[in-house]
C-alpha cells in the first residue's frame, strides 16, 4: 500500500499579458504547462527522488504534493485522503498539513532571521496544538534539537549565529516538530559544502529509519540522489520520462535523457588511475 499517490498531476501557469494589453497588441494567451500528467506513488518509509534540470517542473510538483499549490488537473492522495479535495473541513485540512512537512534549499531564507531558534521550532507545536503545557513544550524543543544534533542550549540563539549546515538542522527540527509522516526535501543540500552535505544527508537517513518517514526528495544532483533514493523519477520539461528502482536506473538507464544525465553528472568515482 503506497502512502502517497500522485495521479495525472498537471499544472498550467498563465504567463499572458493582462487582457487589455492583449487586445492592443493582438497577442494570444500564453499558457505554460509546468507539469504534465505526472503520476507516481511512494511507499511508506521509502524515498522517492525526482531528478531534473532547471525548468523540469520538480519544484512545482513539490508544491502540489505539499498542498500549497492546487493542481490544474489530477490529484494527490496522502494516506488515502485527497489533499486538494475542496470538501475537506478545516480540521481535516489541518490534520493533512501536519502530516506533510518540508525542508528547503536555502539555509538562509528558510528561517525567519528575527526569531529565536527555540521559537522557530516551537511554532508548529503551538500551531497544531500538539502540546499545550509550557514545560512539556520546552522539553519537546530540547528533544528535537538533540535529535538533529544540536544542543538544547541553542534555543535562545538567532539563526545568524549558526553555520549553513546547522541552519539546515534547525530547518529539519522544525519539520519534525509537527510529527509528520512525510517530509518533502527540496534540494536540501545544494547550498551546502561537501563535508556538511554528508552530515545532513546522513541525518535525514537516520531520521527516516527512526520515525519511518516517507521522503519526496528533489534534486538536480544524481550523486546525491543515488545515496538517498529507493526509486528515482526522471523529469524533463514537466514530463516523467523514466521511473525505476534506483539500483536499476543508475546501472541500466533506458531513456536517452537519463543516459545523458548520467554521463554528464560529474562523478568523483570516474577518475581513472
Amino acid at each position: 500500500m503506497s502512502y502517497v499517490t500522485a495521479h495525472q498531476l498537471t499544472r498550467h501557469f498563465d504567463l499572458s499579458d493582462p487582457w487589455i494589453v492583449r487586445q492592443i497588441t493582438g497577442c494570444q494567451k500564453q499558457i505554460l504547462t509546468a507539469v504534465d500528467q505526472v503520476s507516481f506513488s511512494i511507499k511508506k518509509g521509502e524515498t522517492y527522488a525526482l531528478v531534473g534540470e532547471s525548468g523540469s517542473g520538480k519544484s512545482t510538483i513539490a508544491q502540489m504534493v505539499s498542498g500549497l499549490l492546487r493542481p490544474s488537473m489530477g490529484s494527490v492522495h496522502i494516506d488515502g485522503h485527497d489533499f486538494h479535495d475542496g470538501g475537506l473541513d478545516a480540521m481535516s485540512l489541518r490534520r493533512m498539513r501536519q502530516r506533510v512537512q518540508m525542508v528547503f534549499q536555502s539555509p538562509y531564507a528558510s528561517l525567519n532571521p528575527r526569531w529565536k531558534v527555540g521559537d522557530i521550532i516551537l511554532e508548529p507545536i503551538k500551531s497544531f496544538h500538539l502540546l499545550d503545557d509550557t514545560q512539556a513544550q520546552q522539553k519537546r524543543v530540547a528533544e528535537l534539537l538533540d535529535q538533529v544534533g544540536l544542543s538544547a542550549r541553542d534555543v535562545n540563539k538567532y539563526p545568524h549565529e549558526f553555520s549553513g549546515g546547522q541552519r539546515q538542522r534547525i530547518s529539519i527540527a522544525r519539520a519534525l516538530a509537527s510529527q509528520p509522516e512525510m517530509i518533502i526535501c527540496d534540494e536540501p543540500t545544494s547550498a551546502l559544502d561537501v563535508s556538511v552535505q554528508a552530515q545532513v544527508l546522513n541525518l535525514l537517513k537516520e531520521l527516516q529509519r527512526e520515525f519511518l518517514l516517507t521522503y519526496l526528495f528533489i534534486s538536480h544532483d544524481l550523486a546525491v540522489i543515488s545515496t538517498m533514493a529507493n526509486t528515482i523519477g526522471v523529469l524533463k520539461n514537466g514530463q516523467l520520462v523514466e521511473e525505476e528502482a534506483a539500483s536499476k536506473l543508475l546501472t541500466n538507464p533506458k531513456h536517452d535523457y537519463t543516459k545523458m544525465l548520467l554521463s554528464s553528472a560529474p562523478d568523483i568515482g570516474s577518475i581513472k588511475i
Binding site: 498542498g67 498539513r97 512537512q101 528547503f104 525567519n112 530547518s171
Partner: peptide
C-alpha cells in the same frame, strides 16, 4: 522566502504570517 512557505505549511493564517513573520 522559504520561511514564509514554512509558515504556510503549518497552517498559519495570512494575518498571522503578516504580523508574526
Amino acid at each position: 522566502k522559504e520561511y514564509i512557505t514554512a509558515a504556510k505549511m503549518i497552517g498559519l493564517s495570512k494575518r498571522q504570517i503578516m504580523l508574526l513573520h
